[in-house]
Design a protein around this nucleic acid. Structure first.
Lengths: 198, 198
DNA sequence: GGGGTCATGTAATAGGTTACATGATTCT
DNA sequence: AGAATCATGTAACCTATTACATGACCCC
């Protein structure tokens, strides 16, 4: 099924991908991640980046190429992709595309414990969520439109498209849920069952 | 915005919720998590459970109640929810319900690097994904139907409902994506742009 | 020329996962 | 009685996040 990767952090995938283009030093990798806003889909922070780079080097997927001291800034180590690294990138990417994996979204956790909260309050909380959610959908749509108008090809926006699709579905779900929670029958039942716990 | 919790692992939330009902020892908590299949929405493993319990105790959200040696099994420490723990449970749950959080789904990462793979191959991989996905949707639907037929109230199925909703949206997204990838115009463009990298 | 903030990295700490350990019960 | 598996936990090992450090450049 699912392969046990030597380096499992998604950041590593991005590193491999960037090194396909040319050798780079870690800081530069980080800069590009932010610049291209890939940090929207990959949880980026500098500490982890250096860690991941070290792991990749140890695993033989990238190799130290040279250490330069350009100006008098701290030394920067430039890494290059190895043949194995290239292979890993493709293999990993294929797996990610082809095989869905069990995700654990935060909202799912909340839902699995929803009966704990009183229905009326929950409905209110969900309305707040819905508002934020619709806001986000709007933002992303705008962002996509903007990028398109600048001539960005759709492949580079596909992941934002995905985001809207999912958010949109969540919006519909939340709306329906609110209605169910406001159903007086349910409110009564809930009070009978759980109302005692204050 | 988002509160920095003393204990952030979602497992902790489940622990607090179960302890609302009655004091328990960790192993029992784990047993119930699995029994009620909450491990579908919360990433459960025993090691983490013991860790989380320790953290919760240190934070004062739960308290050691007694240590029993029933039979001659290893000693089991029974924990009870404290007043602070109760408060934390509610507060946390409210936040999870009301505020969407940035998630980093694996598929999103793949999408953000989609241009790396040749379109024809990608389309094939996505078909495989689509198949698995539709299978999962079917499974969950069946699971819901089953539970309903056993008289389970909808609140306890709401999280499976959420799952289907999202999976379903993903299915539609993937289908469309496949079509776009099969568009000869795009295939040509891709070859011009990236075909060189083998 | 002193106060921000860029550029660059390391080290300390906390968090999570796997592996190991051991007696009890149950099955055949 | 030996094999499998349940019940229960601890310890070792990775991973990830935060905090710290330091010299350069840029602005008034």
């Amino acid at each position: 099924m699912e392969k046990r990767r030597k380096v499992g952090n998604p950041l590593a995938l991005a590193v491999l991908a960037w090194l396909m283009l040319e050798p780079m030093h870690p800081y530069e990798l980080g800069r590009r991640l932010k610049e291209t806003e890939q940090d929207r889909s990959i949880n980026y922070n500098r500490g982890s980046l250096y860690m991941v780079v070290k792991q990749l080097a140890k695993a033989g997927f990238i190799a130290e190429q040279e250490t330069v001291r350009d100006t008098q800034r701290p030394e920067r180590t430039v890494y290059a992709l190895t043949e194995e690294g290239r292979a890993e990138l493709y293999d990993w990417l294929r797996e990610l595309v082809a095989q869905p994996r069990q995700e654990y979204p935060h909202f799912g956790v909340a839902l699995s414990l929803l009966s704990v909260l009183p229905p009326e309050e929950t409905a209110g909380l969900l309305s707040a969520r819905l508002a934020t959610l619709t806001g986000q959908v709007g933002d992303i749509r705008a962002r996509i439109a903007q990028a398109e108008s600048e001539g960005v090809t759709w492949v580079f926006l596909v992941e934002e498209q995905y985001r809207v699709t999912v958010l949109d579905a969540e919006c519909r779900f939340v709306s329906e849920l609110i209605e169910e929670l406001e159903n007086p029958d349910y409110i009564r039942t809930w009070k009978e069952m759980f109302g005692s716990r204050t």
